[in-house]
Structures are given as structure tokens and as C-alpha cells.
Design a protein around this nucleic acid. Structure first.
Lengths: 207, 207
DNA sequence: ATGAATGTGAGTATCCTGTTTATATTCTCG
DNA sequence: CGAGAATATAAACAGGATACTCACATTCAT
């Protein structure tokens, strides 16, 4: 719930020093996320982003050396957010049902603003130039958290990693699909997703 | 397993009459699917498709009035295929485990050739101009088959539709994710997906 | 062999892209 | 206040890619 303190900034042409410019940068990233989610990578142009941010194209290039640096910033912000959701859900030991609920609630929250951003970032947007490492590291930590959760409620140590993979992609699939049809906040869907998680992790038998 | 007989063809400029031209059209659609899956909608250009098909760009426009008609043909072919997989898996009554296995096997098969085509078709490629109806109808029948299967193994009639939705998108998520990392034919993943389906449908307790 | 079916690919016109730059405005701080 | 730094502007550019046409060549069926 807090993306308060700004990162040292990925690769910026100039560090924003005044409050005004910080707001500008924030607006650009936010608008970028919006455009990316709404139009996809194919419709993601720097001019469009600048316009959506209510900022001139020049300002954009004052802080981001090129288009990819901008995507990188967007990616970073979004992934940090998602990561914190899973981390918090899988943090302390708690009943399985509670974990499932918190996870679903958090994931839905993280996707409510820019419904398809996550998928676009994963599938469409190019992941080149050094972002490859960051991307892999994100994926690793992502799975790690899932695996932690799975291991916590499971006796058999065997398939933990595969289960984490299956679980995470299943959850993503449901969320993504719901997002596409604007059903993210349908309560019965949330309920069913929670049940899916519970039942799968516990390997059957649920209250 | 049979997409033998050709459809009357969506909207074609000219009907292929000789064997030669039928092969050409087929090659174009096939190459289109390949390009779409490999480069995504952003990289899907008519010139690229023609080249990949080993056919001149002129030939492409001899049969497809425009780019969208081509996507439409690709979409139609792929969705028919997927639909038949689910239909056959949910056809006669059979043990839950068998249903799950056949479903997974079929879905993986349908995605092995063009791993990300399905997702690209759903998410990236524009679905305008009258294709909206066909698309909706596909989705409806798609869910219907899932619902049939769910209802078959479930007592409670209540959440059948929601469950079908959750199940289908979960399965799609796992398949899509596996396809992205070339893990479609990892046996332990298949096994886990089968288990996920079984456990979710049966609402716990599985052999 | 003749007309229809099919195939060719250079060419066109258009649109858009990312990016620069010269200039204008606003802030900070002595 | 005022000077220099930080920030913002938008017109313009150079280049590339795109969807699609057309005049012509080839291959088929009869």
C-alpha cells in the first residue's frame, strides 16, 4: 500500500530535483501505464504518452533517454507493487484460507487500475537490454513467494516448484480473464478463485 | 482431429478453385498463424506473412480483401480447433480423471504448434467489424462445454457458470504460461494441471 | 490453343515513429 | 530582487514501415 519513496530511478537523463518535475515524471509513468494497458504495446507511442500525461513530448525526453527506458520504469513500478502483494500475503504463518483470501484481494487490487498492464508487460513489451536480468530476477522472486506459501501448507516437498508455477499462472489467468471482461470485482468470482487456491494447495478436503 | 472440409471462406475476394490456389490460401493462413504467434500483433504485417508463406504479396490480396479478413480466417481456424478439443473431452460421460486428462492433452496439443497464438488472438488482435458476433458466439460455446463438464461432476447447480469461467481461464493461464517458457510438454506440469482440474471440480477429495 | 485462374513484386501513397533543438517559462537561492 | 539553473514547450525532421494496387507473367482446364 506504499510506493511512497521513489526509486533511484532506472536510467534517467536527468534527475528531477524540484517537486514540479517529480510530479511530471510520475505523471508520465502513470500515463504510460495507462496507454500500455489500454492500447497495448502496438499503440504505445511516446507522443501518445506525453499527451495522455498532459505534458509535452520534450519533457518526456528530458527524463527518459528513450522509449524503452520508459517501459522499464513502468515495468519496475508495477512489478514492485505486485511483488509486495504476494510477499505480504505469504509473510507470516496464517491459515490457508486467510492466505488465499489476502492473495486474491491483493492481486485484484493490483490489477484494478490498469487491468491488462501486467499481461502486456509480460507478453508484448520487449524485454531487452539488461532488463532481461531484472525481469528474470522478478520472476524468480515471484515464484519463490508462491513456493513458500505452497510449502507451508503442504507435506510433500516433491512438486513444490511445479505447483508454485501452476498455481501462479492459474491465478494470473483467472485475474487476467476477469480483467478483460470487467469482472474483476464480481464477488462470486473472487470466492471461486479463493476456493481454487485452497483446494489445490491442500490437495483436496477443504472446510 | 479433423478440419478437413474447408469453410465457405469468411470474406474472400475470390474463391480458390484449383488445387494450387487452395494450397496457396492454406499456406497464407498457416504462415499468418506462425507470424502472429511469433511476432505478435505488432509484428503482424501482410508483407511478412506473404514472405513467410513463400508467396507474393499480390497473391495474398487476391484472396483476402484486407489484413483483418486474414486475421479473421486465422482466428476462425484456430478457434474451431480448440472448440473441438473441448467438445470431444466433455462429450460422453466418463470418469472425472479421464476428462481432465483428455482436456489437458488436447489443449496442449492445440497450443504446441503456435504456442502463443491463442492469447494473441484473444488479447492483441483487434476484434472489430462483425467479427464481434462470431467471437462472442465462440466464447459462449466455449464456456458452455466447460459448464457441461462441471455440471456433470458436481451436485450443486449453483455456481456452475462461474466455475466454468474460473476453470477455463485457469487452464488457459497455465497453458499460456507454459507455452511462453517452452514447457508445454513437461510431464510434471501436465500432471499438476490435471490434478488442479480434478480437485477443483470435485470440490476436494481426489483419488 | 484460348480464355480463365492464378501468381508476381516493384511501386505508391500515407501515416507514424522516436527524437532533437531552439526557445519560453518557472523555480531556487544569495 | 535577479541571475542562473531547472524545467517545460512544440514545431520540425529524418527515416522507416505499412497496407495495398496494378500491369504483367505464368499455369491451368477444356
Amino acid at each position: 500500500m506504499s510506493t511512497r519513496i521513489a526509486k533511484p530511478a532506472a536510467r534517467m537523463r536527468k534527475q528531477p530535483r524540484q517537486a514540479r518535475s517529480i510530479a511530471t515524471v510520475e505523471a508520465i509513468i502513470e500515463a504510460g501505464a495507462h496507454v500500455l494497458s489500454e492500447l497495448g504495446w502496438a499503440g504505445f507511442s511516446t507522443n501518445k504518452v506525453a499527451e495522455a500525461a498532459g505534458v509535452s513530448i520534450g519533457s518526456l525526453y528530458q527524463y527518459f533517454p528513450d522509449k524503452l527506458a520508459l517501459v522499464e520504469a513502468i515495468r519496475r513500478r508495477h512489478f514492485d507493487h505486485v511483488l509486495s502483494v504476494i510477499r505480504e500475503a505469504a509473510a507470516e504463518e496464517k491459515p490457508l484460507k486467510q492466505f488465499a483470501r489476502e492473495l486474491v484481494r491483493g492481486m485484484i487490487g493490483a490489477h484494478s487500475i490498469h487491468p491488462t498492464l501486467h499481461q502486456v508487460l509480460l507478453d508484448e513489451a520487449p524485454g531487452d537490454r539488461g532488463s532481461r536480468a531484472a525481469h528474470a530476477s522478478f520472476q524468480a522472486r515471484y515464484l519463490e513467494h508462491y513456493a513458500t506459501a505452497v510449502a507451508q501448507y503442504r507435506k510433500r516437498r516433491k512438486d513444490t516448484e511445479t505447483m508454485a508455477r501452476v498455481l501462479s499462472s492459474a491465478v494470473e489467468g483467472v485475474i487476467h480473464n476477469a480483467a478483460r471482461r470487467n469482472m474483476l470485482d464480481a464477488p462470486e468470482l473472487q470466492k471461486q478463485l479463493v476456493e481454487l487456491i485452497q483446494v489445490y494447495i491442500s490437495g483436496g478436503k477443504v472446510a
